[in-house]
Design a protein around this nucleic acid. Structure first.
Length: 120
DNA sequence: ATGCTGACGTCGC
DNA sequence: CGCGACGCCAGCA
């Protein structure tokens, strides 16, 4: 076996884990890229989570990416959504108030995978 | 191969 | 408290 694993395989695993976590987000709840990155052991690698989200639309199973925002609760990636319906509207339909692309009471709806989910 | 960019986050000034 | 710089890692010119 090669000493070095293929990065693509590792990435794939990382992406899958991201999707899995995102899909576990309950309706009406939101989380942040950093929280997911931290949960996956990629502290500071929040950008990779965002990268994974960018490719989330390629996944067969639906990924509620609209429930993932930055740590400020701002809909940073709303413009990147493939869906016609704005990210804000999707969140509002789940009972989350959004003002100026920012989630109100973000802490209240925040869903921390490390807290809600147990270490597997 | 090198450098810039990107759906972020943390630290320093 | 606002702004800038660095770090993270993968994709792409």
């Amino acid at each position: 076996m090669a000493k070095t694993l293929k990065l693509s395989e590792k990435n794939k695993d990382f992406f899958e884990m991201v999707y899995q976590v995102v899909r576990l987000i309950p309706e009406g709840r939101v989380t942040s890229y950093g929280a997911i990155a931290n949960y996956l052991g990629r502290r500071g690698g929040a950008r990779m989570v965002g990268w994974a989200m960018n490719a989330s639309h390629t996944q067969r199973e639906y990924v509620p990416a609209h429930r993932v925002v930055n740590r400020n609760g701002v809909l940073s990636g709303k413009h990147h959504f493939p869906t016609e319906k704005p990210m804000q509207l999707s969140l509002e339909q789940e009972g989350i108030e959004v003002k100026e692309d920012q989630i109100l009471e973000f802490e209240k709806f925040f869903w921390d995978p490390q807290q809600e989910l147990d270490w597997d």
